[in-house]
Protein backbone atom coordinates (compact mmCIF):
# COMPACT_ATOMS: atom_id res chain seq x y z
CA UNK A 1 0.00 0.00 0.00
CA UNK A 2 1.41 3.32 -0.98
CA UNK A 3 -0.30 5.18 1.88
CA UNK A 4 1.74 3.13 4.38
CA UNK A 5 4.91 4.28 2.76
CA UNK A 6 4.20 7.98 2.77
CA UNK A 7 4.82 8.54 6.52
CA UNK A 8 8.02 6.48 6.38
CA UNK A 9 9.36 8.43 3.42
CA UNK A 10 8.41 11.71 5.07
CA UNK A 11 10.05 10.62 8.31
CA UNK A 12 13.36 9.84 6.63
CA UNK A 13 13.20 13.02 4.58
CA UNK A 14 12.63 15.26 7.59
CA UNK A 15 15.04 13.31 9.80
CA UNK A 16 17.68 13.64 7.08
CA UNK A 17 17.16 17.38 6.81
CA UNK A 18 17.25 17.65 10.61
CA UNK A 19 20.56 15.82 10.92
CA UNK A 20 22.13 17.64 7.99
CA UNK A 21 21.10 21.07 9.24
CA UNK A 22 22.18 20.26 12.81
CA UNK A 23 25.58 19.21 11.51
CA UNK A 24 25.78 22.36 9.44
CA UNK A 25 24.97 24.53 12.47
CA UNK A 26 28.23 23.58 14.14
CA UNK A 27 30.36 23.59 11.01
CA UNK A 28 29.45 26.74 9.06
CA UNK A 29 31.69 29.76 9.58
CA UNK A 30 29.09 32.48 9.45
CA UNK A 31 27.12 32.67 12.69
CA UNK A 32 24.06 34.14 10.94
CA UNK A 33 23.93 31.09 8.68
CA UNK A 34 24.31 28.90 11.75
CA UNK A 35 21.31 30.57 13.41
CA UNK A 36 19.22 30.21 10.26
CA UNK A 37 20.22 26.55 9.91
CA UNK A 38 19.14 26.03 13.50
CA UNK A 39 15.75 27.41 12.50
CA UNK A 40 15.65 24.78 9.75
CA UNK A 41 16.55 22.09 12.28
CA UNK A 42 13.72 23.19 14.58
CA UNK A 43 11.30 23.19 11.67
CA UNK A 44 12.26 19.65 10.69
CA UNK A 45 11.87 18.51 14.29
CA UNK A 46 8.42 20.12 14.35
CA UNK A 47 7.54 18.21 11.19
CA UNK A 48 8.61 14.96 12.88
CA UNK A 49 6.30 15.72 15.77
CA UNK A 50 3.54 16.44 13.31
CA UNK A 51 4.07 12.94 11.88
CA UNK A 52 3.59 11.58 15.41
CA UNK A 53 0.26 13.45 15.57
CA UNK A 54 1.55 15.81 18.24
CA UNK A 55 0.25 18.92 16.49
CA UNK A 56 0.25 21.14 19.54
CA UNK A 57 3.87 20.40 20.37
CA UNK A 58 4.85 20.93 16.74
CA UNK A 59 3.18 24.32 16.60
CA UNK A 60 4.62 25.32 19.98
CA UNK A 61 8.09 24.41 18.82
CA UNK A 62 7.73 26.65 15.80
CA UNK A 63 6.12 29.49 17.74
CA UNK A 64 8.46 29.46 20.72
CA UNK A 65 11.77 28.36 19.28
CA UNK A 66 11.58 29.68 15.75
CA UNK A 67 9.36 32.64 16.48
CA UNK A 68 10.83 33.90 19.73
CA UNK A 69 14.09 32.28 20.71
CA UNK A 70 15.76 32.23 17.32
CA UNK A 71 14.71 35.75 16.43
CA UNK A 72 16.30 36.89 19.67
CA UNK A 73 19.33 34.84 18.78
CA UNK A 74 19.59 36.43 15.36
CA UNK A 75 19.25 39.86 16.92
CA UNK A 76 22.14 39.18 19.26
CA UNK A 77 24.28 37.65 16.52
CA UNK A 78 23.71 40.61 14.21
CA UNK A 79 24.15 43.24 16.90
CA UNK A 80 27.37 41.76 18.22
CA UNK A 81 28.82 41.80 14.70
CA UNK A 82 30.81 38.61 15.21
CA UNK A 83 33.44 38.38 12.50
CA UNK A 84 33.42 35.03 10.79
CA UNK A 85 36.70 33.38 11.58
CA UNK A 86 39.23 32.68 8.87
CA UNK A 87 39.90 29.23 10.26
CA UNK A 88 37.47 26.40 10.21
CA UNK A 89 34.51 26.85 12.51
CA UNK A 90 35.66 24.03 14.79
CA UNK A 91 38.85 25.95 15.49
CA UNK A 92 42.16 24.45 16.54
CA UNK A 93 40.50 21.51 18.20
CA UNK A 94 38.78 20.41 14.96
CA UNK A 95 40.82 17.30 14.36
CA UNK A 96 40.65 16.14 17.97
CA UNK A 97 36.91 16.79 18.09
CA UNK A 98 36.29 14.80 14.92
CA UNK A 99 38.46 11.93 16.18
CA UNK A 100 36.55 11.82 19.48
CA UNK A 101 33.21 11.96 17.68
CA UNK A 102 34.15 9.14 15.32
CA UNK A 103 35.43 7.03 18.22
CA UNK A 104 32.21 7.58 20.12
CA UNK A 105 30.14 6.72 17.08
CA UNK A 106 32.06 3.48 16.56
CA UNK A 107 31.69 2.58 20.24
CA UNK A 108 27.96 3.18 20.10
CA UNK A 109 27.59 1.10 16.95
CA UNK A 110 29.62 -1.73 18.46
CA UNK A 111 27.60 -1.62 21.67
CA UNK A 112 24.20 -1.39 20.17
CA UNK A 113 24.36 -3.00 16.76
CA UNK A 114 21.29 -5.17 16.59
CA UNK A 115 20.90 -5.33 20.37
CA UNK A 116 19.27 -2.01 21.11
CA UNK A 117 15.88 -2.95 19.79
CA UNK A 118 15.68 -5.91 22.17
CA UNK A 119 15.64 -3.64 25.20
CA UNK A 120 12.90 -1.37 23.97
CA UNK A 121 9.32 -1.91 25.05
CA UNK A 122 6.93 -2.58 22.19
CA UNK A 123 5.07 0.56 21.30
CA UNK A 124 2.98 1.51 18.36
CA UNK A 125 1.36 4.80 17.57
CA UNK A 126 -2.38 4.81 18.12
CA UNK A 127 -4.04 6.62 15.25
CA UNK A 128 -6.81 8.96 16.30
CA UNK A 129 -9.88 10.20 14.51
CA UNK A 130 -9.74 13.54 12.76
CA UNK A 131 -11.75 15.30 15.50
CA UNK A 132 -9.38 14.16 18.26
CA UNK A 133 -8.02 17.17 20.11
CA UNK A 134 -4.36 17.00 20.94
CA UNK A 135 -4.47 20.20 22.98
CA UNK A 136 -7.31 18.91 25.11
CA UNK A 137 -5.57 15.63 25.87
CA UNK A 138 -2.38 17.47 26.79
CA UNK A 139 -4.22 19.96 28.99
CA UNK A 140 -6.07 17.21 30.82
CA UNK A 141 -2.82 15.42 31.61
CA UNK A 142 -1.01 18.61 32.59
CA UNK A 143 -3.65 19.87 34.96
CA UNK A 144 -4.49 16.57 36.61
CA UNK A 145 -1.79 13.93 36.56
CA UNK A 146 1.17 16.25 36.12
CA UNK A 147 -0.10 19.23 38.08
CA UNK A 148 2.80 19.15 40.54
CA UNK A 149 5.58 19.26 37.93
CA UNK A 150 3.54 21.81 36.00
CA UNK A 151 3.40 24.16 38.98
CA UNK A 152 7.10 23.62 39.61
CA UNK A 153 7.84 24.63 36.04
CA UNK A 154 5.87 27.81 36.68
CA UNK A 155 7.99 28.52 39.78
CA UNK A 156 11.06 27.95 37.65
CA UNK A 157 9.92 30.65 35.25
CA UNK A 158 9.23 33.00 38.17
CA UNK A 159 12.76 32.47 39.46
CA UNK A 160 14.10 33.12 35.96
CA UNK A 161 12.24 36.45 35.83
CA UNK A 162 13.39 37.47 39.30
CA UNK A 163 16.98 36.54 38.49
CA UNK A 164 16.96 38.33 35.13
CA UNK A 165 15.58 41.55 36.61
CA UNK A 166 17.88 41.36 39.62
CA UNK A 167 20.94 41.05 37.42
CA UNK A 168 20.04 43.67 34.83
CA UNK A 169 17.96 46.37 36.51
CA UNK A 170 20.19 49.24 37.54
CA UNK A 171 18.83 52.14 39.53
CA UNK A 172 21.20 55.05 39.14
CA UNK A 173 20.65 57.94 41.53
CA UNK A 174 21.00 60.56 38.74
CA UNK A 175 18.76 58.67 36.36
CA UNK A 176 16.02 60.88 34.89
CA UNK A 177 12.76 59.07 34.49
CA UNK A 178 9.03 59.65 34.20
CA UNK A 179 6.66 58.69 36.96
CA UNK A 180 3.38 57.72 35.24
CA UNK A 181 1.45 57.86 38.52
CA UNK A 182 2.43 61.48 39.05
CA UNK A 183 1.78 62.29 35.40
CA UNK A 184 -1.77 61.02 35.69
CA UNK A 185 -2.43 62.67 39.03
CA UNK A 186 -1.40 66.08 37.77
CA UNK A 187 -4.05 68.86 37.78
CA UNK A 188 -4.42 71.69 35.33
CA UNK A 189 -3.51 74.17 38.05
CA UNK A 190 -0.15 72.41 38.55
CA UNK A 191 0.75 72.82 34.91
CA UNK A 192 -0.03 76.47 34.37
CA UNK A 193 0.10 79.32 36.75
CA UNK A 194 -1.77 82.49 35.85
CA UNK A 195 -0.04 85.46 37.40
CA UNK A 196 -0.90 89.07 37.44
CA UNK A 197 1.84 91.46 36.43
CA UNK A 198 2.07 94.94 35.08
CA UNK A 199 2.34 95.23 31.32
CA UNK A 200 5.89 95.60 30.00
CA UNK A 201 6.76 98.82 28.16
CA UNK A 202 6.55 98.35 24.37
CA UNK A 203 10.10 99.57 23.63
CA UNK A 204 11.99 96.60 25.20
CA UNK A 205 10.88 94.13 22.49
CA UNK A 206 11.56 96.42 19.50
CA UNK A 207 15.26 96.13 18.95
CA UNK A 208 15.52 92.59 17.56
Amino acid sequence: MISDWIPVVLFYAFAGVLLASALAVITVRNSVYAALLLVLAFFSAAALWMLLEAEFLAITLVLVYVGAVMVLFLFVVMMLDVKSREKHALGGYGKVAIAVAVAMLLEMVMLFAGKLAAGLPETSLTRHAADYSNVRALAEELFTRYVFPFELAAVLLLVAIVAAILLTLRRRPDFKHLDPARQIAVKASDRMRVIKMPAEPQSSGDDK
Binding site: A160, A163, L167
Partner: peptide, 29 residues
Amino acid sequence: MVMVSGNNLVTLYLGLELLALSSYALVAF
Protein backbone atom coordinates in the same frame (compact mmCIF):
# COMPACT_ATOMS: atom_id res chain seq x y z
CA MET B 1 13.07 20.01 49.10
CA VAL B 2 11.63 18.78 45.82
CA MET B 3 14.91 17.07 44.98
CA VAL B 4 14.73 14.94 48.11
CA SER B 5 10.97 14.33 47.84
CA GLY B 6 10.47 13.84 44.12
CA ASN B 7 9.08 10.49 43.18
CA ASN B 8 9.29 10.68 39.43
CA LEU B 9 11.91 11.79 36.96
CA VAL B 10 10.23 15.04 35.92
CA THR B 11 9.75 16.26 39.49
CA LEU B 12 13.32 15.46 40.46
CA TYR B 13 14.66 17.23 37.39
CA LEU B 14 12.54 20.33 37.98
CA GLY B 15 13.65 20.49 41.62
CA LEU B 16 17.25 20.34 40.48
CA GLU B 17 16.73 23.11 37.95
CA LEU B 18 14.97 25.30 40.50
CA LEU B 19 17.94 24.98 42.82
CA ALA B 20 20.43 25.51 40.00
CA LEU B 21 18.75 28.60 38.57
CA SER B 22 18.52 30.25 41.99
CA SER B 23 22.16 29.40 42.67
CA TYR B 24 23.36 30.98 39.41
CA ALA B 25 21.61 34.22 40.32
CA LEU B 26 22.97 34.13 43.86
CA VAL B 27 26.53 33.63 42.61
CA ALA B 28 26.18 36.64 40.31
CA PHE B 29 24.50 38.64 43.08
